[in-house]
Design a binder for these strands. Structure first.
Lengths: 239, 239
DNA sequence: TAGGTTTGCTTAGAGGTATTAAGTAGACCT
DNA sequence: AGGTCTACTTAATACCTCTAAGCAAACCTA
């Protein structure tokens, strides 16, 4: 009986409080914008007074990083679920589903998605062991894993490694190593190109850098997906 | 004699002070990061005390917007100069020069370029009559004007308007109108696609969203330019 | 079950921020 | 010469992050 509860009562309480804090942060972010997410305001929201929060986080920055990590995880989960819902479909279809899920989450959570980008990644949050970095990496892996599966089951056309500039070749080789060689440098190049276009488009939409021309980027995103499907040699992308 | 000096002594002094303030802001931004750009710190730098700055700007936000506008203007000028240096070259070559100048400025002024994006565009700075918006528009026009010239002298291939989704067609038609029809909707679509890819890539580089894979995006950018040249039907893009 | 430790909070306070208000010295113009 | 405008000043408000010190209750252990 006592053995089954691995988490002590204390720890459960702590977790609950942490969850409440994160919810307060998110609420403030969504309702009053990033600037409203102050230690004091968050503390007030959860019914404690200011400095109490320092028992949970060492600094404002760490709190922000932790919540940002939440958002990354939630986004990654949304993408994974979109895939899981089509577990039997061909990889190509699941890739498109994941990409659409990414934008769907971004659109329905603009404040959260905006925070992921716009909040300057402070040096401490760029450390590989930071919670934020871990969560960001998991997010990135969703599409990477799918692309690896595609590469293994139905390889897409890639440029000759010799055709790439030397500097790029080196960088791609290094990156290929960091993903344990699951994609060779040439394939990594194609993957990164697709990733960059898609993510970049979303990034600009969220940062309102395209407002001067577009009011709704859905068709633009879909066109980008068609292009991506062509590059990866997928069957008809739907829509 | 008195007629020739359109600007009174007073106004000249004011301009000098404003320039000094902007220089102080920039210095703080570059040396200590965006968070160090506070009203007080800026005032200290120029040798006045805090609230004095409110005689020049109504708020911290307005000051930030004004300096951001400076950056946009400087960036636009750098691109224009790159074109002017090749005034006799074909449009295609000038387009590529402008694009390269854009990245060159971004790389040599990372703090400034980062601020252009990362600083959340507050509602007041999104108003069409804000200094920031004006300067941003001038920046956007550099490549637009070049593309218009290309379109008029050597039209590039465009998709059929009927092939585009209705929603996109409407948006493109509206945008075409805002640029006085200098590009028809189909051509505007191609222009915006190129613009989005290029600007998005730079945006992600500056926001450190690609650090996980690349250490130097120069070859990636050049590849993007080759793609762009192909899309616009330019001759060999060089490099 | 008693004692010490850990946890979660409190208030007080230092030093910073943006911004407003009120007052003053001097330049400018009539 | 007198009034207005400009550029600044200091004082004050209300907020911010974060540190320090202290207290009560929960927990663990002897």
């Amino acid at each position: 009986m006592s053995m089954t509860e691995r988490t002590s009562r204390r720890e459960r309480l702590r977790r609950a409080t942490v969850a409440e804090i994160h919810a307060a942060v998110r609420g403030l972010l969504v309702e009053k914008g990033p600037a409203a997410v102050t230690i004091n305001a968050v503390a007030r929201q959860v019914g404690m007074s200011g400095p109490a929060l320092y028992h949970y986080y060492a600094s404002h920055e760490e709190l922000v990083g932790a919540v940002t990590a939440d958002f990354f995880r939630e986004l990654a989960t949304a993408m994974e679920q979109a895939c899981a819902a089509r577990a039997d479909a061909p990889v190509g279809e699941r890739i498109l589903a994941a990409c659409r899920a990414m934008r769907a989450w971004a659109i329905s959570h603009p404040a959260e998605f905006g925070w992921i980008f716009a909040s300057p990644i402070t040096p401490s949050n760029r450390r590989p062991d930071s919670v934020r970095h871990q969560a960001a990496q998991r997010f990135e892996r969703v599409l990477l894993d799918l692309t690896v599966e595609l590469w293994q089951t139905r390889p897409f056309p890639v440029p000759g490694l010799a055709d790439l500039p030397a500097s790029l070749r080196e960088q791609l080789t290094a990156y290929s190593a960091t993903i344990d060689g699951r994609l060779p440098p040439e394939a990594a190049h194609v993957f990164l190109s697709c990733w960059t276009r898609l993510y970049g488009l979303l990034c600009m939409e969220v940062l309102h850098q395209l407002d001067f021309a577009y009011s709704d980027l859905e068709p633009v995103y879909e066109e980008c997906l068609r292009d991506l499907a062509l590059t990866l040699g997928l069957d008809h992308p739907g829509r």
